[in-house]
Simulated assay, not measured.
Amino acid sequence: MPTIAPLDLAGHCVDARFIRDVPFFALADGTVHRLDNGHKTSEVHDGLLCAVLSADGKSLLTGGEDGRVCSTGLDGEATELSKLPRKWITALAAAPGGAIAFGSGRSAWVRSADGTLREFSHERSAEGLAFAPKGLRLAVARYNGVTLHWPATNSAPTELEWKGAHVSVIFSPDNRFLVTSMQENALHGWRLEDSRHMRMTGYPNKVKSWSWSVKGKWLATSGAPAAIVWPFAGKDGPMGKAPLELGTRGDSVVTAVACHPIEEIVAIGYSDGMILVARFTDQKEVLLRRPGKGAVSAMNWDASGHRLVFGSDAGDCGVVDITA
């Protein structure tokens, strides 16, 4: 039976993940908490809006309402990487090699490993950011599509158009597909070799969480009473194929998903705080956590896949050990 080490915090958990096997929790109030021989807290931002893992896995990158982009490592010290006065940092992405991207308003900035800063302006708000797997391209989700930049060159950007508001973006691990989540309760995708469109619709709610399976064959998503898992193994991606529906519940909506780093299973978090895992092959389910105080807002596995860290929108956080 899985065991849970709870951590009761005050406020919305924006991100929960392991930094070198240490659980980190980033809260909207600007604090970063870690469980490292006890509960430790760092005051990082005056209001925290987004957080991602650094490419080397050694620190948590965060952006805030104070216009700062910071890196917090195992020592709890927050290092300021960039500051944009009077701006809110609303999106972040990290690339192999140490480059990071962050967005505010209509601009996205890329900070290279040597500290050089480059701004990319757009006609509409830069909503979501993602680096391609090798870090050479940056995707910026915007109204009516995605703009692809080559930050290290002066090449003209590539525009991928689809009407509607695109709010976040992700590359497939093999760099064959690009997927966005939309304001219109849908996903949209492009096959990058020929810009062919892929429509993934039917969600009753907005997709706010997604996760690629270990080899990139599946994309698990929130936004429905089940985890909707799209197949991406074939050359056409999910086109013409029905998704898996895992962990279906009639009284709760999936709010967070996290694919296991080794096995083809996915952790599914719900609006009532329940967490279970489901296997892709036979859809078998195992309960990890009973309902709690708030909707699960963030989940991530450790590198071994033995522990799952989670946070909720009510500060109801913790770590599940599935080996116990």
Rank of each mutant, 00 (worst) to 15 (best):
L244D: 06
V167E: 14
P243T: 06
E80M: 15
K206N: 12
H149W: 15
S304Y: 04
F120T: 10
F120N: 09
E43P: 10
A5G: 00
W212F: 04
G234I: 03
G64T: 10
R176F: 03
A16P: 10
I100E: 04
V309T: 11
S125Q: 13
K83P: 02
K58I: 11
E159A: 11
L48I: 13
L148H: 05
G292W: 02
R118P: 05
F131I: 03
F120E: 12
A267K: 00
G240V: 09
I265K: 04
G164V: 04
H166Q: 13
K293V: 10
A242E: 13
G63F: 09
H188V: 11
E43I: 15
L138D: 09
G315I: 07
P157K: 07
V229T: 08
V69C: 02
T201P: 00
L219F: 03
G189Q: 02
Y143P: 02
V257N: 05
K206D: 07
D66H: 14
R191M: 03
A227D: 02
P6K: 07
F102M: 14
L148I: 14
T79K: 15
P291S: 07
A186M: 12
A78Q: 06
M200T: 00
L308C: 01
F25L: 14
F280E: 02
N300Q: 15
L288F: 12
K217T: 07
L7Q: 06
Y270H: 11
E80I: 15
G294I: 13
D36L: 11
A295T: 02
A113I: 11
P291G: 09
R290P: 00
C50N: 12
G57H: 04
L92M: 06
A256H: 06
A324N: 00
V22I: 14
A51L: 12
S107K: 06
L138F: 05
G67E: 13
K87H: 14
G305D: 00
L9H: 05
A78R: 09
F24G: 02
V320C: 02
L276N: 04
G234D: 15
I100S: 06
D75H: 13
I4G: 01
L138T: 08
A28G: 14
L178A: 08
A126I: 13
E123K: 13
V207N: 00
R68N: 12
V44T: 14
F18E: 01
S42F: 04
D21P: 03
A186F: 03
F25E: 07
S271M: 03
V69R: 04
T3C: 02
H197G: 03
E77S: 14
S121Q: 13
C13Y: 03
T153F: 01
A141Q: 05
V257M: 09
T62L: 07
A186C: 14
A78I: 12
T248G: 08
I268Q: 06
T3V: 05
S195D: 12
G64N: 11
T79G: 06
Y203M: 09
T79L: 13
E184S: 14
L129G: 07
N144P: 02
G273H: 01
A141H: 05
G247C: 07
G311P: 05
L48S: 11
L308A: 03
V207H: 03
D56M: 08
G47P: 08
A152E: 15
I322A: 00
V169C: 07
L246S: 08
E43R: 15
S121G: 11
P85V: 11
V257P: 04
F171N: 01
R34Q: 14
L246D: 03
A10V: 13
F131N: 01
I262E: 05
S42D: 10
V167Y: 12
